[in-house]
């Protein structure tokens, strides 16, 4: 599966990339919102994992922009856990919301779920 990760913390980004590649996914990384939007446009990934607080465009903006065009699954991975932010995210049409600190193993399991859904489709 082709997965795009948008995350401004470099260590976090590399870590996720490393782990997802180990799981056999093709991984596209982007360090800010703008880069993410550009890469989504050109590579059309099967799954998007994005942080909220990033330079240039927030994860919520990315979610909004993606949803206008496609139903690519989106997982938000963010330190923001306030109710109104989570609700806003789901209102925008994200598929899953994980709050930091998070367990990478849990993330992997959740990603697999989308992979199966993807395979069925």
């Amino acid at each position: 599966m082709k997965i795009l990760i948008a995350e401004d913390d470099l260590l976090m980004l590399k870590t996720l990339e490393y782990r997802l590649k180990k799981d056999g996914h093709e991984v596209i990384v982007s360090r800010d919102g703008m880069e993410a939007l550009e890469k989504i446009e050109e590579a059309s990934p099967d799954l998007i994992i994005t942080d909220i607080m990033m330079p240039y465009s927030s994860g919520l903006e990315i979610a909004g922009a993606v949803r206008q065009k496609s139903s690519t699954p989106i997982i938000i991975l963010s330190g923001m856990g306030q109710e109104n932010v989570v609700l806003e995210a789901f209102k925008l049409g994200v598929d899953d919301y994980i709050t930091k600190p998070f367990s990478p193993n849990e993330l992997i399991v959740r990603v697999r779920r989308f992979m199966f859904a993807n395979a069925v489709r």
């Binding site: 913390d9 260590l11 600190p101 367990s103 193993n105």
Partner: peptide, 10 residues
């Protein structure tokens, strides 16, 4: 910095 992001076994 990493510790703030991760929970569980990690």
């Amino acid at each position: 910095r990493a510790k703030k992001n991760f929970s569980g076994v990690a």
